[in-house]
Design a protein around this nucleic acid. Sequence first.
DNA 1: TTTATTGTATTAAGCAAATAATACAGTAGA
DNA 2: TCTACTGTATTATTTGCTTAATACAATAAA
Lengths: 118, 118
Amino acid sequence: MSWNLDSDRPIFLQIVEHIELDIVSGALPPGMKVPSVRELASEASVNPNTMQRALSELERLGLMRTERTSGRYITEDRQMIDDLKNDLAASGVESFVSQMKKLGLTQDEIIKLIKEKF
Amino acid sequence: MSWNLDSDRPIFLQIVEHIELDIVSGALPPGMKVPSVRELASEASVNPNTMQRALSELERLGLMRTERTSGRYITEDRQMIDDLKNDLAASGVESFVSQMKKLGLTQDEIIKLIKEKF
DNA sequence: TTTATTGTATTAAGCAAATAATACAGTAGA
DNA sequence: TCTACTGTATTATTTGCTTAATACAATAAA
């Protein structure tokens, strides 16, 4: 799995979004043990402090919980995961449509482009 | 016109993209004189240095030219503007579709959401 | 000719993000 | 019990973005 981090935005935020997608897509299923901070940091080639910050944020959002010394686990609250999925979809569509409108594209043109990309 | 700048990404980059949209949409038509650095900086509530950096970047991209002491002007190369529009549309669709796929949405679901947003 | 405006350059300061290098308490497992 | 791994905390340093405060040469306009 490649993390595809760029330097245009804070890395810890990109990591949060990356893992959110993994949770929503099921790559990280409910209840699954999350690799350790150090392991994930190594995978993503970032500093452990940066990964720690991203994981703390995910925990603050309720998407993970910490078992003091055993490790972190994905939430088993499937409703929360489903809500997240809907939120990400809605905001994604929202900003996409807004952007395309600014470019002066019509609805039909946009749909045509999307079908081509699929 | 509100600039809607947030703190999650470098401001000068957001300004570049904002003005690109103005050029593509025709709000800033080919050949039009661009307001001065200081004026734009005031409008956007940013430091003149920051606006200067954004404008330099736009000039580097070929979207503006500088008339030494008279001011800046939007390029009159309509082909370049059209290319920019197509690039922005293509990359926008690309990342949007990629994102929606990761969320596990089907093509039909996506198109349905888009029609609702329009 | 004088004045104001243009882009541009410079220097300093502040701030947040990220890295680096450690350290420590708690505990699961050998 | 001991070892290794867990999350977490701390301090220092670097880097890039932003602001601030000026300054200057060139020129359009009065």
